[in-house]
Write a protein that binds this DNA or RNA. Structure first.
Lengths: 150, 150
DNA sequence: TACTAAATAGGAATTATTACTATGATATCC
DNA sequence: GGATATCATAGTAATAATTCCTATTTAGTA
C-alpha cells in the first residue's frame, strides 16, 4: 500500500491525511511486531525528525476510534498497537514480551467459535481478543537445560 | 473460606500469611468485580487503617506469581485483579468499564476449544484470556433511543 | 526468648499517557 | 484565488499508576 493509497484511504474514512499520520500508519502496517507508541515514534522519527510523540499518540487514538487499527492491552500497562483491524488472536511471550499473531488456521477456528458463542454471551459484542500467554519457541530453546544462560 | 483457612493456604504455598495479605486475599476473593489495586486498597483500609498501597501492590504481585490470582491487562493501562486462578474468559464493557466473567456454559465451550487448539499454536501455553469487548446489557438499555440521557 | 529473614509503610522516583496552548497547515466559503 | 475557520502539530507541563528505596516492624525458628 503506497503512501498515496494510504492518503486516499484516510480521507475516505474522514481522517485528514497529514504526512505524519500517513507515515505513522505506514509504519504500523509495515510490521507484525505490535509496537508501542514509543517504538513507532522512533521508527518514524528517522525520516521525520520534527515528529512529536504526542502526534503519535493522537494519530493512534484517531485510527483506533475509526477502526483502522487496534490497541492491545498488555499486562505491563504499556499499550501496543496492531495494524490488523479484524478481530484475531494473539500469543504473548511472558519471558521476552513479544506478541505474535496466531496462525491463520487457528484464527479460522476461532471465527467458527465466535458464531457458536455469539448468543450465549450477555451484552452486544463489538470486538474480541483471544489471548494466549506462554513461552515462545525461541525462549523455550534458550531456557532448555542444554542451553542454559545462567 | 475463613481467615484461618486463607492463612493456612498461603503458608502451604510458601507465602507468609501476614494479616495484611490475608485481608487483601479475602477482599479479592469476596468480589466478582475484578477490582484495581486502588479499589482493593480502599476496601481493606476500612478495617485495616494503617495499610499501605504499596503493600497491596506487593501482595497482589506475590499472589499472582504463585498462581493464586491473576492480573488482567486493561486498555486503560490500569491493572485489575481476578481472584479466580483458573483460565476463563471475560466480557469488558467499553462504555462503563465493568469486567464480567463469562457464563460457566461459555467457559466450558472455551475449555473444549483449548484442547482443539493446543498443538496448533507455536510456543508453550501457560495461560489464556478470551476477551470480548462490547456493551453490557445495562449500558445497552441506557443507550436505547427510548431512554437517551443527553 | 533471641535471632534472622522477610514484610510493611512512608516518601520519593519513574514513566506512560494526557492536557494545554501557540503556531502552522489545510480546507471551505465567498 | 484570497480570507477565514478548523484542525493538526509539537513543545512543555501535568497527571497518575506503579515501582524503588529504606527504616522499622513482624513472623518464623532455634
Amino acid at each position: 500500500m503506497s503512501r498515496t493509497d494510504i492518503s486516499n484511504m484516510l480521507r475516505d474514512v474522514g481522517i485528514r491525511p497529514t504526512p505524519q499520520r500517513v507515515a505513522i500508519y505506514e509504519a504500523l502496517k509495515g510490521t507484525t511486531r505490535h509496537p508501542t507508541a514509543e517504538a513507532i515514534y522512533e521508527a518514524v522519527k528517522s525520516d521525520f525528525p520534527s515528529l512529536s510523540l504526542n502526534t503519535v499518540y493522537d494519530a493512534l487514538q484517531t485510527f483506533t476510534e475509526a477502526g483502522l487499527i487496534r490497541k492491545l492491552a498488555m499486562k505491563e500497562n504499556i499499550s501496543r498497537y496492531d495494524g490488523k483491524p479484524a478481530p484475531h488472536g494473539h500469543f504473548v511471550c511472558i519471558r521476552c514480551g513479544r506478541v505474535e499473531d496466531l496462525r491463520a488456521a487457528v484464527d479460522e477456528e476461532l471465527k467458527r467459535i465466535d458464531l457458536m458463542l455469539k448468543d450465549k454471551i450477555n451484552g452486544r459484542i463489538v470486538d474480541r481478543d483471544y489471548r494466549f500467554y506462554g513461552y515462545c519457541t525461541e525462549c523455550e530453546s534458550e531456557m532448555s537445560p542444554y542451553n542454559k544462560k545462567s
